[in-house]
């Protein structure tokens, strides 16, 4: 899923400083699952903003909505009849959802209520970790199902580097060495032959370095 973290309340308050009638919009997709942008978070953020603003003597009216997904056009359309009655939208969807809403509603300022994080997994309750950088050219079949681009701090293709000690990355004692994990897994799969091969330079053009990406599938049109 796409993960994220709430922006500090002060930051959101300063974004809405100029407005007294806004929408707080959540999303039932990834951000609901990682507990940062679902309907509960819409309620909590809205109450918090209202309380802070009223205590400051400048109340704000907030419409609370949570869309099925902010990244699909059909779920944004229902906002069209009323969106211009409000001065701005604080969206707590991921950056994709926020932008898509901005794109659809040209006259309404869109304000991010969260900082979008990474493509990750729920390792345990309250703990999410990155697994994929969406580089556009997956090599997991060669690396025991563990991604060198994401899991190695240097994204190297022939690791581990000299900074791997006892399975831990030199960058942070909380980070496991991606290449140690790859090697352990290749060994358990009896696929160490994959290790000894020189890998071609990665085509980063399939990643974000090639500019904003687009997928067109004629078969799905």
């Amino acid at each position: 899923m796409i993960t994220g973290t709430p922006k500090p309340i002060d930051e959101v308050l300063s974004m809405i400083e100029a407005y007294n009638k806004i929408i707080v919009a959540g999303c039932y997709g990834c951000v609901t699952v990682c507990r940062v942008g679902g309907d509960k978070e819409v309620q909590v953020l809205s109450s918090t903003l209202r309380l802070a603003r009223e205590a400051a003597g400048r109340p704000v009216e907030i419409k609370e909505v949570c869309l099925e997904r902010q990244c699909d056009p059909e779920y944004l359309e229902p906002m069209r009849p009323y969106i211009e009655d409000y001065q701005a939208v604080v969206s707590i969807a991921c950056g994709a959802g926020i932008q898509f809403m901005a794109e659809k509603f040209a006259k309404t300022p869109l304000l991010p209520g969260i900082n979008t994080g990474f493509l990750g997994v729920t390792e345990r309750q309250g703990e999410w970790a990155e697994r994929c950088q969406g580089c556009g050219d997956c090599v997991l079949h060669l690396t025991g199902g563990i991604c060198p681009v994401t899991r190695c701090a240097k994204s190297i293709f022939h690791g581990p580097c000299g900074g791997s000690v006892g399975g831990i990355c030199e960058v942070d004692k909380e980070i496991k060495c991606g290449w140690q994990m790859i090697i352990d897994r290749l060994k358990s799969l009896d696929q160490m032959d994959n290790y000894g091969k020189l890998k071609p330079y990665k085509g980063w053009d399939a990643s974000r370095d090639g500019g904003p990406r687009r997928i067109i599938r004629e078969d799905m049109k």
């Binding site: 994204s155 190297i156 293709f157 022939h158 690791g159 580097c161 020189l198 330079y201």
Partner: peptide, 9 residues
Amino acid sequence: NVFDIDSIQ
């Protein structure tokens, strides 16, 4: 950080 290619590459 860049790490476009690694040291072996």
